[in-house]
Amino acid sequence: MIRSVIRGSGSALPRTAVSNAELAERVDTSDEWIVERTGIRQRYIAEDDETTSSLAVEASRKALEAAGLEAKDIDLIVLATATPDQTFPATATLVQHALGCNGGIAFDVGAVCSGFLYAMASADSMLRTGMAKRALVIGSETFSRILDWEDRTTCVLFGDGAGALVLEAQDVAEGGPGVLASKLHADGAHNELLYVDGGPSTTQTVGKLRMKGREVFRHAVVNLAAVLEETLAEVGLGPDDIDWVVPHQANARILDATARKLGLPVEKVIVTVDRHANTSAASVPLAFDAGVRDGRIKPGDLVMFEAMGGGFTWGASLVRL
């Protein structure tokens, strides 16, 4: 059967790391307040010369190197972001040109923190149907550009970064590697709980992020546990079969609560929120790359990706390495 197999991963972070103590010098907050509520200890903030596309290009080059491939081998780029370089064209096309693989398919996906799951499912579908052979699936964000730095309930939560995977269509045997199942959902009824208060068609401005954290937390735990169970049921597996969960890094308490709801040991959950904060669409591939490069995630492992974000959108993808 044809499956989309992960060949390599890469990530990129801005040059500047900002600790909670440094943030407290400009915002009415403290290290203790942030750590207790979120588990975040630092985040990376992009400088003026660092953009969503430049971070995406760096992560993509590292993923290609890990895969042993060159840019010319890529014929599909799907980039998930809520902070594109421009309203149009798609940031994916800027990445494509910078890498030097012009002529293939390149487009952006907008599903905020779930964007990488949407991007990976889109690329998987196109690879399995023969529209492309090898894909770069990227999550890249400069969320610091849309934060209200006067709102301590939101600005302390987010950071910038990028992560990328190389997917390749391969004919594999039953039980072999590749994307086994993906489930995606959305519910536009909850727009007011997590959104940006601007846009070209409404205010003609970029806008700032707004969030009602308590309500988002409640929906996240329920929705994430449900979609993980749904994805496992698709292939007749259970939580005990999972080697690693690579979740969206929104909040340490959400990660813990979701693991408990599924009966998963926290030792199976890749956590980077303490170092990266919430990097929206970049957080899942950033966390995956961290787990691969430190040796925890290995070939043959069964890995569950999951995320929920504004929209609401949420989803999960089960992958055998």
Rank of each mutant, 00 (worst) to 15 (best):
I6C: 12
R7M: 08
A17D: 01
N20V: 02
V27E: 12
W33C: 04
I34D: 01
A46H: 02
E47C: 00
E50S: 03
A56S: 05
L64H: 00
K72D: 15
I74T: 03
A80Y: 04
A80F: 13
T83V: 02
D85G: 12
Q86I: 15
T87Y: 08
F88P: 14
A90T: 10
Q96T: 00
A98R: 10
N102G: 12
G110N: 12
G110Q: 07
V112Q: 02
S125I: 11
K133P: 13
R134V: 07
G139L: 00
S140T: 00
E141V: 02
T142G: 10
D148G: 01
G163A: 13
V166M: 00
L167Q: 03
D171Y: 15
E174Y: 10
P177S: 05
A181C: 03
S182D: 13
S182V: 14
A189L: 09
N191Y: 12
L193Q: 06
L194P: 09
L209K: 02
R218S: 10
H219K: 03
H219F: 12
V221R: 05
N223Q: 15
E229G: 06
V235P: 13
V235Q: 06
I242R: 03
W244N: 11
L255C: 05
P265C: 08
T279K: 13
S280Q: 05
A281P: 02
A290D: 08
V292Q: 06
D294L: 13
R296W: 01
R296A: 06
D301W: 05
F305R: 09
E306P: 09
G311V: 04
G311I: 06
S317N: 04
V319M: 13
V319R: 02
